[in-house]
């Protein structure tokens, strides 16, 4: 059975370069980080060779870290809700356009994905300042007397992250929208449903898987975002990622930073796995 061994060897031969790269440069570093998170840290002498659960105990017993994770989750949740509220209607509007305009607006709306997040955040920090475009226009419209504090605020961070994440929601919803069968909606209309009822009872339920998978992407990417909360939130408005950065590059407490990083990774993986399982269970019977 010469060929059988050949055809089982072949794919592994082909993937060995990538597997080597990933084992050496992803699995090993992650394992090292996990080990690091158990190292003892001494304020005077730095990271020690001895091991402890202390870093995790510190995080799990200190309300500061609960607040930190909670704040991050709320931020990511807020961004997710805004992305649903803005992204779903916009995707539906896009789908109703002629192919020409659709093409143009797709590039306008999705194109920013390819532009550095630092650049996009910079644009917003110019607009969000006390003298920025937003405050100026709101004041000149007479909507506000005092300029709003948008920079260095959670409001600002959520606005900018929404801008950064919206394309992902549009992509996810668009993908499910493409699978929609127009005749189903027609059938609903012919059975006497009005256009709103048709949307709510027939179209929206079919879009739910897309909205949900878009939400997972937006939520996890928001919770892992760094540059935007760091630049818009400033040094005092901490989220999980920025506090990891501080532990590593300012406090130099690597073990504690590593422990927070490990917890963030576990939380993200749990959210992705958990919601995937939920989505599969809930939609498998219907959409296969």
């Amino acid at each position: 059975m010469r060929d059988t061994s050949k055809s089982t060897r072949q794919p592994w031969l082909l993937s060995s370069p990538s597997v080597a790269l990933f084992l050496g440069l992803l699995v090993v570093p992650l394992a090292l980080t996990a080990i690091l998170s158990f190292n003892v840290f001494d304020a005077m002498m730095g990271t020690q060779d001895s091991y402890t659960f202390g870093n995790y105990l510190e995080i799990l017993t200190d309300s500061y870290y609960y607040e930190l994770f909670l704040r991050t989750a709320l931020m990511a949740g807020g961004v997710t809700v805004l992305c649903i509220l803005l992204g779903v209607p916009e995707t539906i509007i896009l789908s109703r356009m002629g192919p020409r305009y659709q093409g143009i607006f797709f590039v306008m709306i999705l194109g920013p994905l390819l532009i550095s997040v630092v650049v996009r955040t910079l644009g917003w920090s110019i607009m969000l300042g006390r003298e920025g475009l937003i405050n100026q226009s709101l004041t000149s419209l007479g909507l506000i007397g005092e300029p709003l504090q948008l920079m260095y605020s959670m409001t600002g961070v959520v606005i900018v992250l929404t801008h950064v994440m919206l394309p992902f929601m549009v992509i996810a919803v668009w993908t499910t929208l493409q699978k929609l069968d127009a005749q189903v909606a027609d059938a609903a209309r012919s059975l006497g449903a009005g256009s709103w009822t048709t949307f709510r009872r027939v179209i929206l339920p079919q879009l739910l898987p897309g909205i949900l998978s878009g939400s997972i992407i937006v939520f996890t990417l928001s919770a892992s975002a760094f540059a935007t909360p760091a630049l818009i939130g400033g040094r005092r408005l901490k989220v999980v990622t920025t506090s990891i950065y501080d532990e590593f590059l300012h406090s130099m407490n690597w073990p504690l930073g590593a422990a927070i990083a490990v917890l963030l990774l576990i939380a993200i993986v749990a959210v992705v796995m958990g919601s995937n399982r939920y989505i599969e269970r809930k939609f498998k019977q219907v959409f296969t």
Binding site: F22, L25, L26, V28, P29, L30, L32, T33, L36, T220, A223, S224, F226, V240, T241, I244, Y245, F248, W254, G257, A258, A261, V262, L264, L265, I268, V269, V272
Partner: peptide
Amino acid sequence: LSPLMIPHVVLGVAFLRF
């Protein structure tokens, strides 16, 4: 595909240590 899911902060920490 896992680098898409792992937060880049975590990757940064891991590579820094590595």
